[in-house]
Write a protein that binds this DNA or RNA. Structure first.
Length: 299
DNA sequence: AAATCCACCAACCGCTATAAT
DNA sequence: CATTATAGCGGTTGGTGGATT
């Protein structure tokens, strides 16, 4: 089948947009609204392909674009979502109002990924690795450690899920579940989490329903002015980490993500799962990998 | 002051999914 | 059902400006 060129390559301008082009595009959209991108450049008098116009609008000219550096809460959200979902930039963008997938992707690649690799050189993202060696995480901020740990957990779970998926497909007994959060919750990470919760004597009742959860859920509203949730479990983590590593000071700003989540999030089981997983208890957040190492060994 | 390096980010490319015909 | 068109996504590239040598 294949996909034809989105536009006639001849006579189509490329490269940075000029203010005049921006103005033409904005004026056209203000007047006619969003419609067919293919015909837009011609109608608007732009020598650009429709795709380029769409990108320019969604990544730069859209009125609701938020500019400026990422807040600690936004940063933490990206870190955690990446830990759970991987490179799902568009979904992360949907959770961060005013931010674009491109912006988040750039931010990850230029800042967060760098931080990850600098502190976790042992954490080479090696899909084929089934090693259960403990990850050597030296003193870093809790959020950074979480990042490393979650990346590790995600890779392991991903490998296992894909293996399970293959097995299921070969038997033709199950449909692939559409919801990644539910998959994650039902995977080894979620299972191990529930085990630890029980060990700690906490209520282990699952607040995550088995109902499919849409990945296109309502955005998490990161309103720093609202802090309805006491970060109880976060405190537990910080305390144990302080005992473990005296020189490591928790980064208050970054760790406030659970505080900054809106008040009605717990009505949303997706975010509940996220919060529970973020606030994974225990001194070594990922010690369950070692304890339950059989969970993480590929068949 | 010039050359080089590096970080950042806007924009492009190629692909997939889906709707339309 | 097959084909085509379009939107959207993620990976990558290239230009620019600041820092360093």
């Amino acid at each position: 089948m294949g996909r034809g060129p989105c536009c006639d390559k001849d006579g189509v301008k490329k490269g940075p947009w000029t203010p005049e082009e921006d103005q033409l595009l904005v004026q056209y959209i203000q007047k006619h609204g969003l419609g067919c991108w293919r015909s837009l450049p011609k109608n608007a008098g732009l020598l650009r392909c429709g795709k380029s116009c769409r990108l320019r609008w969604t990544n730069y000219l859209r009125p609701d674009i938020k500019r400026g550096p990422f807040s600690p809460a936004e940063e933490a959200t990206i870190v955690h979502l990446h830990g759970m979902l991987g490179n799902k930039w568009a979904y992360m963008a949907s959770q961060l109002p005013g931010r674009t997938d491109n912006e988040i992707k750039n931010f990850w690649n230029t800042h967060l990924k760098k931080r990850l690799t600098s502190i976790g050189p042992k954490l080479q993202i090696n899909q084929s690795s089934s090693s259960s060696e403990p990850i050597n995480i030296k003193c870093e901020s809790p959020s950074t450690r979480h990042m490393v740990q979650w990346e590790s957990a995600r890779v392991e779970a991903e490998a296992r899920l894909s293996m399970q998926s293959l097995l299921l497909k070969s038997k033709s007994t199950a449909k692939s579940h559409p919801d990644i959060f539910l998959q994650l919750w039902k995977s080894e990470v979620g299972e191990a989490f529930r085990i630890i919760e029980e060990k700690d004597g906490k209520t282990s009742e699952s607040i995550v329903s088995d109902e499919p959860l849409s990945i296109k859920n309502e955005p998490v509203l990161l309103d720093d002015t609202v802090s309805p949730m006491p970060s109880k479990t976060t405190t537990v983590i910080d305390t144990t980490q302080e005992q473990e590593e005296d020189t490591c000071k928790p980064n208050e700003d970054v760790m406030t993500v659970s505080d900054s989540i809106g008040s009605n999030e717990f009505a949303d089981s997706t975010d509940t799962a996220l919060k529970l997983l973020l606030d994974f208890p225990g001194g070594n957040d990922m010690e369950f990998i070692g304890e339950e190492s059989e969970f993480f060994q590929l068949p």
